[in-house]
């Protein structure tokens, strides 16, 4: 009983000198894995205006609008649930998922992506990035 009371003390003390799990986020960024679904991106040239994506979207995050004499989807990141259904259903592979991690905006309006913005690739992460693999080495998890 006494051992069970005192042992946590030493385990706790031992852990105080281990490496932390947390990433110092604003200073260091974690690189998403390859398959990570950040948001949807449109390739306007490939779009054939078939409306498959707007029909399948469960939350009506996609809407057809007129852009340069062509009907293309407009994207509402505030409604999107990142379920990947539209990417799968698109017959001409015009939609794809991109690695965008931070897409917070100051207004609700900023979350609506008109076609021209919708087709822009996200900003590349410029700060120091860590991959999960490097992080694991530091944490002493998966040695390799």
């Amino acid at each position: 009983m006494v051992v069970d009371i005192i042992r946590p003390f030493f385990i706790g003390l031992y852990h105080a000198f281990k490496r932390t799990f947390t990433v110092k986020h604003p200073f260091v960024r974690l690189k998403p894995t390859e398959r990570y679904r950040g948001r949807v991106m449109l390739n306007i040239d490939r779009c054939i205006s078939c409306r498959s994506c707007t029909n399948i979207c469960p939350n009506m995050a996609l809407e057809m609008v007129k852009f340069e004499k062509k009907l293309v989807p407009q994207y509402d990141a505030g409604r999107c649930c990142l379920c990947n259904l539209c990417v799968e259903v698109c017959p001409s592979m015009a939609l794809s998922m991109v690695h965008e991690v931070e897409f917070s905006e100051y207004t609700r309006k900023g979350l609506i992506y008109p076609p021209d913005r919708f087709s822009q690739p996200p900003k590349p992460i410029t700060e120091k990035t860590l991959t999960v693999k490097i992080l694991d080495k530091k944490r002493g998890v998966a040695h390799g």
Binding site: G12, L13, H15, F17, K18, T20, F21, T22, K24
Partner: peptide, 13 residues
């Protein structure tokens, strides 16, 4: 800071 280290966190930064 110390409790954060025990919990493998960073603490105030």
């Amino acid at each position: 800071k110390f409790l954060a280290r025990i919990m493998l966190r960073i603490g105030p930064l």
